[in-house]
């Protein structure tokens, strides 16, 4: 009787893939902090960090080391278990999404065909949605466990914001699912790669816009960064945090940004599809590498858009946030869903 019977090679392959994806996400997030400062500087006619290493490229490591070596302070009146759990939860939720994303097509290595996706589940889109809705626990638990009024206010704001914008996000995703007819992210990408089939942005422009706005809100990025509003809540939910726990919170935001850019690129912009190129004509390994490059380019463009918006628009007021979420986004998403359904029915009837 074999207790744990599985394909050992597959296990190893997936383990390596998971390690690559997680460390890749962390590395990208590391350099996103650098890019954020650089982009902010360039948009404000400044130079940005340029002292640590050539062009300031070692700056993120300097920042990270500084955070690691800072004194770690846990407030006496805080709830210690939850205080420590908060940043970990935020980071875990941020990293978990990458499990279902297809990072590229297959590669052939050592007589094996390796799919560049950790798990191709048939509910990929819903999985992403579920993990995103978990992300708010990190903020809420951290904010509550700090035992500080400002942190609690920020945590409550974060929770209400996340719940409000999840609704519009779900509705815009439903419209997309109506078009694709599948919840698997791999299938969605493959559909967009078919000749004669445009990227989903062509079929769902309004849906994409709604999803983009909701992604900003879910990542707590400006103009929706109310949970960490410096001027009214001091520092928001991570006010009591120091050292690498603070680093985890700050870092989780960048990982979230990377992952949501990857999701948008995957479901609306063809994922690893290279426009005007028939991937089946070139060898699969080269196609896979080119595909990863294409996906990364799209992700970088989205990350730039995130930063560009951050350094352009001021923060929303709380009532503006709620008005936008419930009175504009949700009705628009519903209208988009109904319109999509009607058009699909009309096309089927023809």
């Amino acid at each position: 009787m074999i207790v744990l019977a599985f394909d050992f090679a597959l296990f190893l392959e997936k383990l390596i893939l998971i390690a690559v994806v997680i460390f890749g996400s962390l590395g990208v997030a590391l350099y996103t902090t650098f890019a954020e400062r650089k982009v902010a500087a360039i948009l404000q006619d400044r130079r940005g960090p340029n002292r640590a290493g050539p062009f300031g490229l070692l700056q993120p490591f300097a920042d990270g080391l500084k955070l690691v070596f800072k004194e770690e302070i846990i407030p006496n009146t805080s709830n210690k278990t939850l205080f420590i759990m908060g940043p970990g939860l935020a980071m875990t939720a941020a990293l978990m999404t990458s499990a279902v994303l297809p990072w590229g097509n297959k590669v052939e290595l050592f007589d094996r065909t390796i799919a560049l996706q950790i798990a191709d589940v048939n509910i990929g889109m819903l999985y992403v949605f579920a993990v995103v809705s978990m992300g708010v626990y990190g903020i809420m638990i951290g904010g509550w466990a700090s035992n500080n009024k400002f942190s609690l206010m920020a945590a409550l704001r974060g929770a209400s914001q996340a719940i409000s914008y999840e609704l519009a996000m779900g509705l815009s995703l439903i419209a997309l699912v109506m078009v694709t007819g599948s919840l698997s992210l791999k299938t969605i990408v493959e559909q967009q790669m078919l000749p004669g089939h445009l990227w989903n942005i062509a079929y769902q422009p309004l849906g994409f816009l709604l999803f983009l706005v909701c992604a900003f809100a879910e990542c707590n990025r400006t103009p929706f960064d109310l949970p960490e509003a410096e001027n009214e809540l001091n520092f928001g939910y991570h006010q009591e945090y120091s050292s690498m726990k603070l680093g985890f919170y700050l870092f989780a935001e960048y990982v979230n940004m990377f992952i949501s850019s990857a999701i948008m690129a995957t479901i609306y912009f063809g994922g690893y599809d290279i426009p005007f190129l028939d991937e089946s004509k070139i060898s699969p390994n080269i196609a896979a590498i080119l595909g990863i490059g294409a996906l990364m380019t799209k992700i970088i463009i989205f990350i730039f858009v995130f930063m560009w918006v951050r350094w352009t628009i001021p923060r929303f007021r709380y009532d503006q946030l709620m008005n936008l979420g419930w009175k504009k986004m949700v009705p628009l998403a519903l209208a988009n869903m109904l319109l999509t359904g009607a058009i699909i029915l009309w096309l089927q009837g023809k």
Binding site: L43, D45, R46, R47, W308, W311, T312, I313
Partner: peptide, 17 residues
């Protein structure tokens, strides 16, 4: 607003190293 900030990418930086 995004158009305004984007146009600043191409502006000369007044910073002196």
């Amino acid at each position: 607003g995004m158009g305004i900030t984007f146009s600043h990418i191409f502006k000369k930086k007044p910073t002196i190293n």
